[in-house]
Amino acid sequence: MTTDTTHAATSAEHAENHGMSNAGYIRIALILAAITALEVSTVYIDFGPFFLPALLIMMAVKFVMVVSYFMHLKFDNKIFSLMFYAGLILAVGVYAAFLATFKFFIQ
């Protein structure tokens, strides 16, 4: 169809604007894989007091990387970020308060 090619042209431009090539995606995936390996290693190597914060930070880093790069949130319209992070932050806040009322964090 004639319209299809015009879409394709703008889409290709669009993809370049995202600033990510396929090589870039593979690089992100390799980093994610490395973090996952590090995460799994915490089960076998004793990290002492750093165990819990390290795991949570690595989890957060992986999460943000997938959202920012694979889901393009970093390069996309800010409204998408607003919608998603509003839900995420609300969920974290409300459920943290919810668990706090059960004295979950002082056990």
Partner: peptide, 13 residues
């Protein structure tokens, strides 16, 4: 994206 924002509260729960 709006839907995914909502899903955060589902899995959060």
């Amino acid at each position: 994206w709006t839907f995914l924002g909502s899903e955060c509260l589902l899995f959060g729960g």
